[in-house]
């Protein structure tokens, strides 16, 4: 089978991630309702059945394309060198860290640290002064609007507690 040089093979490995997740999730879902009353089953079995059928069709289509040389089981459309070059991996790591730390550090401090670090990663550690200023303004602005003015129940830490005490006691 000749491969058209103008049409590079599709990275079908990447395209199969969502259907594979869908199959695993649907089978898990079925396992949780297997002994349930019909009211809990009817909708999930009908929707899940259609989803499994669609995934099977897609798997078959993908295998057919691989056999014809129109696609390969690679993940080039999901994981690339670009992820390192653009700092995407760094951004993912700092985002996970943000979710993890915000409960302990509170909104303002965690937001400042997250913005500072992720902006530095994305700018390849250039313009430290501007990044620091932007991060500080955004974090303090967020605190002023959402916590001080609207008293929303954002995660609070020592910064928020200190500012509350300072503002209360004049």
């Amino acid at each position: 089978m000749k491969i058209d040089p103008d049409r590079p093979p599709r990275h079908l490995g990447g395209e199969l991630i969502i259907p594979a997740l869908a199959v695993v999730f649907t089978l898990y879902f079925f396992s949780t309702i297997w002994n349930s009353p019909w009211t809990a089953q009817v909708s999930a079995f009908s929707l899940g059945g259609v989803l499994l059928l669609l995934c099977v069709i897609f798997f078959a289509k993908a295998l057919g394309m691989v056999a014809k040389g129109e696609g390969s089981l690679t993940f080039g459309n999901v994981v690339t060198y670009e992820d390192l070059r653009t700092g995407r991996l760094g951004l993912i790591v700092t985002t996970v860290g943000y979710c993890w730390l915000i409960d302990d550090l509170g909104f303002t401090l965690a937001t400042f640290l997250f913005l500072w670090l992720s902006m530095l990663v994305l700018s390849r550690f250039r313009g430290v002064g501007r990044v620091t200023l932007t991060s500080a303004i955004m974090a303090l602005g967020g605190w002023a609007i959402f916590i001080w003015a609207f008293d929303t129940r954002f995660p609070r830490g020592w910064f928020e507690a200190t500012m509350e005490a300072v503002l209360k006691n004049g």
Binding site: T111, F114, L122
Partner: peptide
């Protein structure tokens, strides 16, 4: 823009 979007929307 990207870090600002992430921080404020996640909260």
């Amino acid at each position: 823009l990207a870090p600002m979007i992430i921080s404020f929307t996640l909260v």
